[in-house]
Amino acid sequence: MAEPVPARALEPVRLYGRIARMWIRASLAYPVSFWTMTIGAFFTTALDFVGVWILFGTIDGLGGFGLQEVALLYGASGIGIGVADLLIGSVEQVGQHVRTGSLDVMLVRPVPLLVQVCADRFQLRRLGRIAQASAVLAYGFGAVDWSPARLLVAIGMVLTASVVFFCLFVTFASVQFWTADSSEFANAFTYGGNVLTQYPLTVFPGELVKMLTFVLPVAFVNWYPCLYLLGRDDPFGLPAWLQVAGPLPALLLCGVAALVWRAGVRHYESTGS
């Protein structure tokens, strides 16, 4: 087995792609159902933004931000959770795998457990949400006075947002290794983090914003990069470098997610339930 190292490192990704493609093929076997669900997902999330729009029917600005600026925040957060949900949203099912015993089946296969759990039941229709968020983000981009640096930060923002939500999904799904039927607990952080970052953080108390910066760093999903894109000073007087620091907490979160996941698997291996 004298394989070059990069090929081996990419093996899990390739396998992920293989499993995902198989699920896509299976779902496309029922095209009517597939398209209704995809379009349905688009409109579900579209109505969600209509809610924000209705709020703005009664007010001109929320926490000092206009509708288009809120759209910027909303779109970035939405793409982040959308991409994470598309790629690894299935990790939420880990408690179910524990309960039904399918986790054991995955454990006796020569592929990392995380790859198998994430690729299981890959649902292409989750693209609907990403499409909606992209449309909202495109509208929000109208509020930005573009420069090369801002373009770079915008790209970094979308990547950071995806990685942060990716980590939140994995970290809090791991809790189900300890209590299998607590999947809703994770929603508070994943979907909660999404809803929270749809609004300007100026509507929240400063203490909470500090917590969202230094403890559970969801503020980096969109808040800080958007301040940069809009050329605004930090309303809470926090340092300006935070606005471009996003990748750092994202990397840290990756480490945390990996550790918690491993601890979860260890726990499972030492209790078998």
Partner: peptide
Amino acid sequence: QRTTLWWDLPLRDSFELLQRIY
């Protein structure tokens, strides 16, 4: 009591997937 195959996939697809996995 529980299958190692993928519930919604045809048997052939399950086998092909296992070929890749192993």
